[in-house]
Amino acid sequence: MISLGVEGTAHTISIGIVDDTRGKCKVLSNIIKIYRPEKGGIHPREAANHHANYVADLIKESIKKSGVDFKDVDIISFSRGPGLGPCLRTAATAARALSLSLEKPIMGVNHCVAHLEIGRGTLAGCKDPVLLYTSGANTQVIAFAEGKYRVFGETLDIGIGNCLDKFGRTIGLDFPCGPKIEELAKNGKQYLELPYSIKGMDIAFSGLLTAAEHYYKNGEKLEDICYSIQETTFAALTEVTERAMAHTDKYEVLLGGGVAANKRLRNMVNTMASAREACFFVPSKDLCVDNGAMIAWLGLLMYNSGLRMSIEETVIDQYFRTDMVDVSWRD
C-alpha cells in the first residue's frame, strides 16, 4: 500500500511517499522545504504563504522521485496537528484537494505520534521505545502505555529548540540557531552554572534562558555560555527520559525532532541507554526533522487498522495532543 503524506505543522512543508513491506516502512521519497524568516522568529502567516507557494511543486517532485504514479497512490495523509493554524490549514487544504481529485481516501494524523511511529517503522529492533521528542516547539517524553501514546514528561514552558533559537537571536545568530550553538559549544571550556529545572518528569527552560542571557550581557565567553546551555539542558532532557524509561520499564529509547540532530544530545542519551543496558535509536536525519514520510507512514498504519476519515472530519486541530489519539494499530 502506497501512502502520500503532507506535513506542514510549522516552518516545514514536506511531501513524503512510503510503501509498506512486511510491516516495515519503505520511504520512496521525502522532499522537505523549510521556510526561513529573514529575521526574527517564524511568522505563522508568512510560513503558510511559503507552504502554499511550494506545496504543488513539492507534490510533483516527490511523485517523480518516488518512481510511482499518481494512480498508484492508495491513501493521502496529512498532519492534523498540533501546530500553527495557518500552516496546518494550508497543508490540510492541499491534502483534501489531492484526495478529492485522485479519489483516494484521506487520513489526518497526529504529528507527535508520527515522530515515534517512523522510528518503529524504519529501524530494525525498535519496537516499544520511549521517545525523546525535541524540536522547536515540542519537548516531550512519549511512550506507549495502556492503549495510548502518553506524555510522561514535557516542557512546562518553551520547547528546547525554541530555547536555543531565542538565545541564538539574542546573540545575533540566524534561524535555526541550534547547529551554530553546537559549533560554538565545542570550544567552550568553562562551565557556567545554570538553573537545572526538573519537576517530576517535566522540565522547564525559561529560567535557564534568562540566566544565559545575563551571562551574555555580563560579557562571559560565548563559547562557554553555549557549552553550559547544552550541557545543562541536554542533561536534564536525558534525566527525564531515563526517569520515564524506569517508570514504564522500557529498554528502548528513540530520538526524534530537529534537535535530535545535535551530536552532544545523541551522545548523552546513548551513554544513558548503555548504562541501563537499553537500546538507543535515532532515525536518519530527514526522518528526524518534520517530514512528509512519517505522516504518510502513520496514515498508512491507521488506515490499515481499519480507521476511516471523511472530508468533514479532516478539520485541523492546533491543540491536538499526543494522548488524544486512540492507538488502534498496536496491541
Binding site: Y191, E193, Y196, E231, T232, A235, T238, E239, N267, M268, V269, T271, M272, A275
Partner: peptide, 11 residues
C-alpha cells in the same frame, strides 16, 4: 551519571 559533566553531576 556519566552522561553529564562532573561539575553538574557532583552538585
Amino acid at each position: 551519571k556519566t552522561y553529564r559533566i562532573k561539575n553538574i553531576d557532583d552538585k
